[in-house]
Write a protein that binds this DNA or RNA. Sequence first.
RNA 1: GGCGGCGUGGCCGAGUGGUUGAGGCAGGGGCCUGCAAAGCCCUUUACCCGGGUUCGAUUCCCGGCGCCGCCUCCA
Length: 463
Amino acid sequence: MLRLHDTATGSVRPLALRDPGRFSMYVCGPTVYEVPHLGHGRFMLVFDVLRRYLTFTGLDVVHVCNVTDIDDHIIERAAREGRREPEIAAEYEARWWEAMDALEVLRPTAVPHATAYIEGMVDLVADLAARGSAYETDDGVYLQVDTIDGYGLLAHQPLESLRAGARVESSAQKRSPLDFALWKKAKPGEPTWPSPWGEGRPGWHTECVVMSLSLLGEGFDLHGGGQDLIFPHHENERAQAVAVGKDFAHHWLHNGWVTVGGEKMSKSLENFTTIAELLERGDARAYRLLVLRAHYSSPLEVTPETIADAEKALDRLDALARRLSLADPMDGPVVREHSAAAPAGVDEDAVSRFCVRMDDDLDTAAAMGLVFELVNRAHAAADAGETPAAQRLGATVALLCGALGLRLRATAGEVDEATERLVSERDAARRARDFERADALRDELVAAGWTVEDGPDGTIVRR
RNA sequence: GGCGGCGUGGCCGAGUGGUUGAGGCAGGGGCCUGCAAAGCCCUUUACCCGGGUUCGAUUCCCGGCGCCGCCUCCA
């Protein structure tokens, strides 16, 4: 069974499933007003890997990831560009999924949008007010955090310390700087929805409470996101659930930052690289591999150097796939139970060692270490002429890469006719032992950007 | 100020109370190859500092130093 760090308890503990065989998780998704950067890519990859791994172990995974399609940033951008908010949201959501598709992040099983749940949010806020946990001011409705049992649980700080450190200016009518907006009363020109407190829109922290409980029900298994969501976002979500007496997430999981020069990559620091920029330069799989080679909770330094490093490592996997003609593990569903039926069979011992590592708080870095160990053994077996053993190890590599969402490329890619001709010409020259001619042809191919490999079955070119 | 994280070889990055501390990249030597490429074999380099606990600590505890983060929108 998978053991995972739980932010609520600060310890690694077994992931307990509410429903046997079924895993439910809610991951806080994007506010769609800007293109996604590598930090977003990381958290989506981390939870994608969690999902894939649990699927691999035979669980049914329900993965909800919301889209915040109304908030201050969207309104601001719409105003600046003289456009309507839904148009902004739709545009950036499209670009979000485009990037995630390119990273081969599986589409979540449900993608609720905040604006589709306004009524539920109004009901929740009314409920909170009726219970005396919320109060109305001139500009909105606020949750009074000192009415919440255990406020500060996720932040691991008592209410007093949080209050002492609060940097936010307390508005005149807020009873505490930590009280947060559940409902914001309409300002001129903003999109609004009706409510008992007049026209307005919901505060950010409310949507996830309503959407997670609506789609997953009480006591769902896991709630996740980046570490910067721990406080105040997740703390405030939890506060609302506690106030209305709902059993909320049973496990909280947060991933570490992408860093640049040791600093957090973020929109506000403007030190971000977009996913689109990454994809222009290189293989999307290299980023997944880079993410996999670090523990999800650690900061991850992303630079052209670390990406190039990952691309080299990827070459090593692809080289094995080419040598053994491994099937791309991403072509079909990758479920452990099916593995025994794989044509060449797999090394069950390696698979269980892999699972031990993954079950230990999703230690993908150690798991990848094992995969590369298998790559080495597969090559060594092939060198020794032990074909069945090599195939078996290769099939295991493919299976495990598939469990992590890492595609293998056994083919060299499209080779055009002119190149094809040069290759066969060179083969002919080599057969005739005309090496001068063969080398000249290779130079020509290399100049065109090809890598030339003379194998036992003839020459392969690849880019 | 409060709270939390991190500090491992040239780089990235796991892990562990103990004879031989993953893995990738990079470097060196060799094998294979017509020469390469790919691959294989061998190999160089590390646990921030100071105490403590221990037969023994990189791993546990305490104290430093350094870096980063959260406490405000933020994955």
